[in-house]
Design a protein around this nucleic acid. Structure first.
Lengths: 229, 229
DNA sequence: GGATCTATGACAGTTGCGTGACAAATCCGC
DNA sequence: GCGGATTTGTCACGCAACTGTCATAGATCC
């Protein structure tokens, strides 16, 4: 598994990044200060380091120089400051990329992948690209991998079921009306809403341990369906 | 001297970039279309390529794919569009970095330098390229060596089969649609998807111990194919 | 208890996929 | 060049799986 170290003092941002990265299939570790981050990286090196510029104590630039001194790990700066001077200074200090907050997680992972292609001929060879997984209790959905697992076991779902499930998973916790699902999964602007029922039913047979009393894929009478943890 | 090729259709912007790069000590060459840029790069390869996304004729994404196909030159996208989708698409197509216009020349050169640190052999001369071997159970694929082995024994695969297998291996665990495979293996933008089926079938005959129930090269009905461990 | 909404089983039409056959294109040793 | 072997792309067929519709039964609300 590909590991990412996130050095960021703002708890909320750090947590958000960690969760998002884990959803994308990375193993993510956090550190609130440069000192802590360097210690973590020395003890248990990650494959990538994300670092904020404004940190208490040792700042981001210094942190990058230290990382560079004893390691060749790719470093991406994640900063709120969109300023040429900072960008140039960070890159000169040894960073490989610079992203301005707020971060689009898709962009971040795309940049990590681009970096991986360019990563120096490592001793370990190229790490395989992680496959993002969305988890709902014992249920795992990997939109990119095209598969669904329950308690680790693959569940055979059809294409429509899969699309339906992904759509629900993408909006986890929110209700989606039958109309919305028809629109997004089938591309129908109008149509028989019973169609959705039927497919939801079939899906429940496969992913719920007791289809009669669904725990994840629940009905909101009069509103639609939602997927929850 | 370090040479940079700038592919940009807007004369003013291209000229400004060329002049600025020359001021910074680069040797800069311009091209107004993707086609011209590709021709120039083939005849007289630059060390870096800057490319705009919106180009007449062949667009930036296609241009990047072509560059990637026959070269390993670092590519930086310079675009007016600051949109996550574009950024992700460009990086996926093979770009190494993405800068939003208007460009600060200092940032651009800093990013080029950062890229040079990471650049593979080519700029600095031929480095001993490690031959990465991708393993899938008893299956071994060495993309550089052009070899496939099953349980240590070499398997004779044809060129197309090999490229297909590499493409799948590179995105191990992810579904690739027939369209994507046609695009990436054959370079077709459209075509008969059954072609993929046939080659997958032939490949299975060779690499699967029981081709009837594939364990690695699996079909995801309605989605495509994927290679797994 | 009636009205409304939802679940589910059955069924026929459709689609998707694997396969073998075949011709064109390409490779290769001579 | 040349002829045979290999590789490649196209096609048609048949099976298996999937999809959408409908009717009916059940659940929930008021």
């Amino acid at each position: 598994m590909t590991a990412v170290l996130v050095i960021e003092d703002d708890d909320r941002i750090r947590l958000a990044l960690l969760l998002a990265l884990e959803d994308e299939g990375y193993e993510a570790v956090g550190a609130a200060t440069a000192e802590e981050g360097l210690r973590v990286q020395r003890r248990d090196p990650a494959d990538y380091v994300l670092v904020d510029l404004m940190l208490p104590g040792l700042d981001g630039f210094e942190c990058i120089r230290h990382l560079r001194r004893d390691d060749d790990v790719p470093v991406v700066v994640v900063s709120a400051r969109d300023d040429t001077h900072d960008i140039v200074a960070a890159l000169e200090a040894g960073a490989d990329d610079y992203i301005v907050k707020p971060v689009a997680i898709k962009e971040l992972t795309a940049r990590l992948r681009a970096l991986r292609r360019r990563a120096r001929a490592g001793v370990t060879g190229p790490a395989p690209e992680p496959v993002p997984v969305l988890a709902f209790g014992e249920l795992e959905i990997s939109p990119d991998g095209g598969e669904v697992r329950r308690a680790g076991k693959p569940v055979p779902v059809t294409r429509t079921e899969f699309r339906l499930l992904c759509e629900l998973a993408e909006h986890a916790g929110r209700v989606l009306s039958r109309q919305q699902l028809l629109q997004r999964v089938w591309g129908y602007d109008s149509g028989d809403e019973r169609l959705v029922d039927v497919h939801v039913g079939r899906l429940r047979q496969k992913i719920e341990s007791d289809p009669a009393t669904p725990r994840h894929l629940v009905t909101l009478r009069g509103l639609g369906y939602k997927l929850q943890r």
